[in-house]
Design a protein around this nucleic acid. Sequence first.
RNA 1: GCCCCUAUAGUCUAGCGGCCCAGGACGCCACCCUUUCAAGGUGGAGAUCGCGGGUUCGAAUCCCGCUGGGGGCGCCA
Length: 485
Amino acid sequence: MSVRVRYAPSPTGDPHVGNIRSALFNWLYARHEGGTFIVRIEDTDQTRYVPGSVEAILEALAWLGLDWDEGPGSETRYGPYVQSERLALYREHADRLLADGRAYLCYCSTERLDALKRARQAKREPGGYDRRCRDPQEAEKARAENPSPVARFKTPLEGTLAVHDAVRGEVAFDLSLLDDFVLLKSDGFPTYHLANVVDDHLMEISHVMRAEEWLPSAPRHRLLYKAFGYEMPQLVHLPLIQGPDRAKLSKRHGAASVLEFRDEGYLPEALLNFLALLGWSLDETSELFTKEELARHFTPERIVASAAVFNREKLDWFNGVYIRKMGDAELADALAPWLEDAERGLPSAVPRPIDRAYLAAIVPLERERLRKLADAPQMLSFFFEERPAYDPALLVPKGMDAPGARAALEAALAAAEETDDWSAPALETAYRALAERLGLRTGQLFGAVRVAVTGRAAAPPLFDTMAVLGKERCAERLRRAVEAV
RNA sequence: GCCCCUAUAGUCUAGCGGCCCAGGACGCCACCCUUUCAAGGUGGAGAUCGCGGGUUCGAAUCCCGCUGGGGGCGCCA
């Protein structure tokens, strides 16, 4: 039997990382098995629909390189892939259950349901619907209260039901604790439970891989499959992703949307690699995987059962690793839009577009210092600004006074002006000799020159930096430093 | 409150009865490299394998209980 798996987000907001991790695992499994990866939009709650979120979800998938074989817009015998376009299917299924006597119409008002819930809470009784309308006479009475009923499933009153989860094994539930859940809402839309079961069957889904929060509803689904006479797909419940406080990861923990991570300058390869290792591992030591390698190795057997905390520092490390893997031209291309961005890029005084050849020369110097692409404007600004601002006090090296620093900078300026060969090795030779002549430690002289030339105490190797900046710019900055110190 | 899941260092994890007085990675610390910052290299601190009982010649690994953590209990998904 071929593997058909699906990612079934509801369009209620941005694509959350926890959610996308489910998409990733489904995608990996599909690709591992040469199966089919399906995207299905579960928009059965009209009230929570957020315009643009379908686009955002698909955008996130595309950014990560998770291509889908079937999804919104696909013309196949399984479509459509948007639940609001499949309403007739759910209604037919609900009708079947109604006709069979496996479901019934419930006319109870929301007021009554609320009151029931409150009363149960007050008495500390287990919650759930009291099945009033399961009695036809009661239903008839209630009918007056509510013109638009819901359809409820008749849950067995007792017994236990075991479902099999690939990660956790058999999980048993006590049926007496399950109430008669809603199948069809009063607006005619299906609930998640109905729509999910109907679609997974009709789309011939072989494995349902979803977050662990769904495990408690597995017995309901089991019951529905049985009632319809359908075979239930394999269940694979993925461990939850938690924030540092160990609660389910959400917006309150900061960036939660994949698109936000993209906008913070994370590389898709890095986020993907990091996410894959949240709840899955190959062996003792392997950490770095491309998407293809992940797909080659991914098996559900190696999914972990316990929840994982989303660890920013490790994500940052992965990002640095993937930045370092990039070639000069590749990184320059990736960086350019970040540097040119009107709001978060280089100061507006720096003309756009930026000089690509110049950027390409800078890249080798900054690559291993970058953690996120978004850091680039700040880190590289001194390469582009005419007059990088800095505190003149930084020009005075440890163990020296201002006049001494001034003398050293004057000498450095003179040496710069005299130099014909403006290459890193030549500059280094010249400045080492100069330090010796002045009786300074190289660290002292180089430190002062670094601040003069870059405006900061921490920068890439000095002579490579000077070589890239060019003689004119360096001389000008040294001149300014002499005056400033 | 009830139900379910879960439990190896701060974090992600390896381990599926003896190879483990527990391996890898992030983070942290130190040293090396070095003109600063990174990157890289080397080393280190950090886990009584949540606790208590069993089973076994032998348990992180199997069983039971407890405790902690999480999730679910909607005409939301």
